[in-house]
Design a binder for these strands. Structure first.
Lengths: 236, 236
DNA sequence: AGATTAATTGTAATAATTACACTAATAATC
DNA sequence: GATTATTAGTGTAATTATTACAATTAATCT
C-alpha cells in the first residue's frame, strides 16, 4: 500500500565540515566521484538509502567519503530548488560539523581526495554548494556569538591565545586580550591545566580544557530577555 | 537522464502554526483528509510537487488547508525516521509560523476543520507530529530569549502589558513590569502610538508598534561575545 | 465623589562591559 | 652569560546594564 499519484524525489545529504588549524578556518571538500561534474570540488554528499534516517545517512556519507567518524553533525536546512541538480530533481539536506583539523588528520582518507581549503581560497563548487557554505558560515557566526561552540573546533587542550585567534578569525576582527580572556574565564567553562604549549611562543601559553559538565549545563541556559533564575527547562 | 539505482522518496512539508490570542498560546490543527489516520488531528501537511521548492510547498499547503496566506514560514528541520509513516516512507520537512490569532481569524477557512487548540489541551496527533511541536516550542523559547521575534505574534499595534503577557506565557513565569518595559524600550524597536487600548483596563494602555527599519537592522546584530562595534555583516 | 482597576514611572545597589599599557617568561642571538 | 626579541599574562577606573523594589496616575464604574 502506497500513497497514490505522488511524485517521489531523490533525497540527498551534504556535509559541510569546517576546521580550524590554529591559524585559519578551512573547509573540507572532495572531488566528486560521478557524473555530472565528476572530478569537480564538492561537499561530501550522497543519496539517502531506504532504511536510514537523514542523520544516519550524513554519518555514513561522511565516513565513506573521508574516513571521518564519530563527528557531531548538526542539521542545517534543506535546499530544494527544483533545478538545483541538472540531472534530476534532488532535495538536499545539509549537515554541519566543526572539527579540530589536527586531531582528525589521521582519520581523513585520501581515497576520495578529501582536502582542506582555506575559506578564502575555495575552489568553484558544484551546484548550489557555495550557497550552502555561505549560509553555514553565517549561521556559525551567529551561533558562536551566543554559544561557546567554537571549543568544538579545538583540541582537548588549547591555549587562550588560540581561542582568541579562532574567534577573531570567525569575525575578521581583533579583540582586546584582557577583556576577551576575562569574558571567557567568567563562563567557568575553562579549566587551567598545568602544562604550557611551547610551540607558538617563547614564553609558552598555559593549556586550558573544557569543563564538560559545566558546558552541558550552561549550553542549556537562556540569556538576555529572560532573567536566569526564571528558567525552568529548555530542551535545546 | 537520471541517477541510476537510487531510491526516490516522498517528501512532505508539515506546518506548525503557533498563535497567541492575548492570553495564551495555541496551535492550529486540522483533521486529516485522507487515510491513514483520516479525521485524526494533524499539522497542516502535504507532499512536495515536482515543480515547487519546499518553501513554496509550505505556503501552498498552508493556504490550501487553512486559507492562511502571506505568512512568514521558517524551516525548522527534517523528520526522517524510515517508519514514521506507516504507509510508505516519507521524509517530512517542518516549517514554523507565529501569527496573531485575531488578525488572521477571518482568513482561516473551515473547509478542512482547522481549529486552534490551547497548548495545554492538544489532542493526540498523528505520526510524529507531537514531537515536531515539542521541538518547535523549545526552539521558539530559545530563539525568543535572544531575538525579539515574539512581536510577530501580535497585531501591528500592541500594548506593553500584552507583550509582557506573551513572554510570561512562553516561559511560564512572571517578570517585573518596570524592568521588562525598560528592557524592551531600550532596544529602540518600539514606537509609542498616540492611541490607547481601552479593552483590557479602565486606564487604558498605550499602543506601541514595531519600528520595522530598526528591527531589520537589529536582528542582524550579534551580541554577547562580540562587541557590537566590531560587527561587519552577518547575513542571518 | 469615591472606589476600583490596571498602567505607568524612579532610584539605589550591584554587576558587567569597556578602554587602555605595562611586566613576565622564555628562546634565540651575540 | 648578557642582550634582544617575542608573545603571554595581568589591573583599574569609567561607563553602562541589570536587578530589586512600591507609589502614583488615568480612566471607568457605582
Amino acid at each position: 500500500m502506497k500513497y497514490s499519484n505522488q511524485t517521489r524525489i531523490l533525497v540527498a545529504v551534504d556535509c559541510i565540515v569546517f576546521g580550524f588549524d590554529g591559524t585559519e578556518y578551512k573547509l573540507l571538500l572532495i572531488q566528486r566521484g560521478f557524473a555530472p561534474e565528476k572530478e569537480k570540488w564538492s561537499l561530501m554528499g550522497g543519496f539517502v538509502q531506504p532504511e536510514e534516517s537523514l542523520d544516519e545517512a550524513a554519518s555514513r556519507i561522511l565516513k565513506q567519503l573521508t574516513g571521518l567518524q564519530d563527528i557531531y553533525l548538526e542539521e542545517m536546512g534543506a535546499f530544494s530548488r527544483p533545478d538545483r541538480d541538472p540531472i534530476e530533481r534532488v532535495v538536499a539536506v545539509t549537515y554541519v560539523a566543526l572539527i579540530d583539523i589536527e586531531k582528525y588528520q589521521q582519520q581523513i582518507n585520501d581515497d576520495f581526495h578529501a582536502r582542506w581549503f582555506p575559506m578564502k581560497e575555495l575552489p568553484k563548487l558544484i551546484f548550489d554548494h557555495q550557497e550552502m557554505v555561505d549560509i553555514a558560515l553565517n549561521k556559525l557566526r551567529y551561533k558562536a556569538a551566543f554559544h561557546p561552540i567554537l571549543f568544538e573546533l579545538l583540541p582537548e587542550k588549547f591555549t587562550l591565545p588560540q581561542l582568541q585567534t579562532m574567534y577573531e578569525g570567525l569575525y575578521n576582527t581583533k579583540f582586546d586580550k584582557r577583556n576577551f580572556t576575562r569574558k571567557l574565564l567568567s563562563t567557568n567553562l575553562l579549566k587551567k591545566e598545568k602544562e604550557k604549549d611551547k610551540l607558538s611562543s617563547k614564553k609558552g601559553a598555559f593549556y586550558y580544557s573544557l569543563d564538560v559538565k559545566q558546558y552541558k549545563e550552561t549550553i542549556l541556559t537562556i540569556q538576555n530577555i529572560i532573567p536566569l533564575h526564571e528558567i525552568t527547562s529548555v530542551r535545546e
